[in-house]
């Protein structure tokens, strides 16, 4: 192991991860997969190609191996950073009971974190608002894609749930709903009513936080006393 890696480890130990440059962070991580002398060189290559470790972490493993000339062990370790981060973030959020508007906003804000494109998600819960399952129904949000009502109904039915929530994000704008957001919510509410699964809320997240359609336009929805505004 090179002296330089020892220096990086000492720097990290003393000052924490924030003090390290992108290349140093990459070299530090790689040193656990690669005990050879070319770790710093590889770290430099990765940062040159991808900008930083975190962009590389989102890359396909095969592609990373080929473009940066690294072995499976190193590529898997880099990839684990993004995958483990996302999974632990979502698992953490999944423990939230969606029995209040604040909890629902908190959950979906966490769930959509890091997404740069609009997506429409559906969540199904049991009678205590504990999350059973979550699914991305479509990419593109309400304004770009006709809300896939059938997919939402299918998802709700297949998961033996009591309630369903829908949510979508506005990655680059505020959380204000458009007229089509409201119309689509009514269509979805009517559809899931027919199959006996109430639509609890439609949460929209934007760069100013979460917005609850039930809290603001409650007349669209059937009353659910257990869901606290």
């Amino acid at each position: 192991m090179s002296k330089s890696i020892d220096n990086i480890k000492a720097k990290y130990k003393e000052n924490g991860i924030g003090i390290l440059s992108e290349q140093e962070k990459t070299a530090l991580l790689l040193s656990y997969a690669d005990k050879g002398d070319t770790v710093e060189e590889t770290a430099e290559k990765i940062c040159d190609k991808y900008g930083n470790l975190y962009n590389a972490a989102d890359c396909d493993i095969s592609y990373l191996m080929k473009e940066c000339d690294i072995n499976l062990s190193s590529a898997v370790l880099i990839n684990l950073v993004s995958q483990v981060s996302r999974v632990t973030e979502i698992n953490d959020a999944m423990r939230i009971r969606l029995n209040t508007v604040e909890n629902a906003k908190k959950f979906f804000t966490s769930y959509f974190k890091g997404r740069n494109t609009e997506v429409l998600a559906a969540v199904v819960t049991d009678k205590n608002f504990k999350i059973n399952n979550i699914s991305i129904i479509s990419y593109g949000g309400f304004s770009e894609v006709h809300a896939p009502i059938r997919s939402i109904a299918d998802f709700a039915l297949k998961n033996e749930c009591k309630y369903v929530f829908i949510a979508h994000n506005h990655p680059k704008s505020d959380n204000k709903p458009s007229p089509s957001d409201i119309m689509s919510t009514i269509e979805i509410k009517n559809a899931v009513d027919v199959i006996g699964i109430p639509l609890v809320d439609h949460i929209i997240t934007g760069n100013n936080g979460g917005y609850s359609l039930r809290a603001n336009k409650g007349d669209i929805f059937t009353e659910i006393k257990e869901y606290k505004l």
């Binding site: 656990y32 930083n52 950073v81 974190k113």
Partner: peptide, 19 residues
């Protein structure tokens, strides 16, 4: 170390929502 790097990754993806 791995935990710290994952923590920074979560910050990175939440901050870098720019065009």
């Amino acid at each position: 170390t791995f935990g710290d790097i994952c923590g920074e990754y979560k910050e990175f993806i939440s901050v870098n929502q720019y065009a």
